[in-house]
């Protein structure tokens, strides 16, 4: 998805992992995804730069769709669609 599309995407759940370091953001994603219905979208907020690579890897492994990342003021917002 493009940055513009992501910016206007409404997440069904927002998981705030800002301030945590590896593996905090993917732990937060694992906890958060169960609260999202299949087809729903979860946004993960993170300050740890490695998350931009780690969350797509987590999504691929756990069978969800990584939609993309947008950079906000001082943090990243990463989008995942629950696929199963």
């Amino acid at each position: 998805m493009t940055t513009a599309e992501l910016s206007s995407t409404q997440a069904d759940k927002v998981v705030d992992a800002r301030g945590t370091s590896c593996p905090g953001p993917i732990l937060a994603a694992k906890k958060g995804i169960v609260d999202v219905k299949v087809g729903g979208i979860m946004a993960v907020l993170a300050t740890d730069g490695g998350t931009k690579k780690d969350l797509p890897a987590w999504a691929k492994k756990t069978g969800h769709d990584f939609l993309g990342v947008i950079e906000e003021q001082g943090y990243f917002k990463l989008f995942v669609r629950r696929a199963k």
Binding site: P23, I26, L27, A29, K30, A57, K61
Partner: peptide
């Protein structure tokens, strides 16, 4: 423990 927790988080 970081690797263990990361792997567990990935299912």
């Amino acid at each position: 423990f970081i690797i263990a927790n990361g792997a567990a988080a990935m299912g």
